[in-house]
């Protein structure tokens, strides 16, 4: 089994929204960041991957097995964090343990309480009394405590302050040290993904725009800023999209070296994932 996740031609139709021919391949041992604006289809894709919603086409394989045919077996080895849902607002961490030990064959009580202590989660407080950061830490502790091989995380760092975010990212880095482990993580905080992701998959309006390695995105992609006059001299084939600002044009290119050779541009800015996402969404061709 080479790939942790294989999603092929996944389709889901809602009134007013379509997930169309989504293809995602996450090789084993890698971290994939899943980006896109609100409503682009990130959570729908994750729900379809986990067989929580019915799909209208395509196939999802996890650990090489069809998710519909081997749901229970697959889910024994997955840790999931969903941004907006959990077990109960009235549970404390001890209640969560009581429940979880019935759910997973591999539930590791000792490991769970180790995370609870590490995250300084109050054992007596109910979930509803936790801050959003604390809630997220609890969900992450639960996701990690049955020795999963794959983490599927929907916005795991939302609501966390920079210190807590850093701490969580370190935990993900530790997790991925094992070659058998993989992470699929959707996030709005694209700077987090720049630190940890091996691959970035970008979804927009229900369609996958690209899957690239982080290094390719950050090293070969570039942003050229120029005047309208200079912009008119550039061949459409040589850039992905452009964005017209008040005083200049911002052009997203995917091959810095070639572009520099052809147009002799002095400065090409190194893009952030956020820059790339913004120009893709807001830009024109």
């Amino acid at each position: 089994m080479k790939n942790a996740i294989e999603v092929r031609k996944l389709c889901k139709n809602y009134k007013g929204f379509q997930l169309k021919d989504v293809d995602i391949i996450l090789p084993k041992g890698m971290i994939m960041g899943f980006i896109g604006e609100n409503g682009a289809g990130k959570t729908t894709t994750i729900k379809a991957m986990l067989n929580i919603i019915h799909t209208d086409g395509g196939e999802v394989k996890i650990f090489g097995m069809n998710v519909k045919e081997n749901e229970k077996k697959i889910k024994e080895d997955i840790g999931v964090v969903l941004d907006d849902s959990f077990l109960s607002e009235y549970f404390n961490v001890i209640d969560v343990n009581q429940f979880m030990k019935h759910m997973y064959n591999n539930w590791d009580e000792e490991l769970y309480f180790k995370y609870v202590d590490r995250f300084q989660l109050d054992k007596k407080k109910k979930v509803k009394e936790y801050s959003s950061g604390m809630k997220m830490k609890l969900k992450i502790a639960v996701a990690l405590s049955h020795h999963p091989k794959l983490l599927i995380l929907d916005e795991p760092t939302s609501g966390l302050d920079p210190v807590a975010r850093n701490e969580i990212l370190d935990i993900f880095q530790d997790f991925i040290q094992d070659e058998e482990h993989s992470i699929f993580v959707s996030s709005h905080i694209t700077s987090d993904l720049e630190h940890i992701a091996d691959y970035i998959t970008f979804i927009n309006d229900g369609k996958i725009v690209f899957t690239e390695t982080r290094d390719k995105l950050l090293e070969t992609y570039g942003i050229v800023k120029c005047s309208e006059e200079d912009f008119k001299k550039i061949d459409k084939k040589d850039f992905i999209k452009y964005k017209k600002n008040r005083y200049e044009y911002e052009i997203l290119i995917d091959n810095k070296v070639e572009f520099q050779k052809k147009y002799h541009v002095e400065i090409i800015d190194k893009p952030t994932i956020e820059n790339i996402m913004l120009i893709y969404i807001k830009g024109e061709k």
Partner: peptide, 18 residues
């Protein structure tokens, strides 16, 4: 109602359960 407040159904379906 408890399940509805926590949106527990969605979360529970991520566990090895049908």
């Amino acid at each position: 109602s408890y399940d509805s407040i926590a949106k527990a159904d969605k979360y529970v379906l991520t566990l090895p359960i049908t």
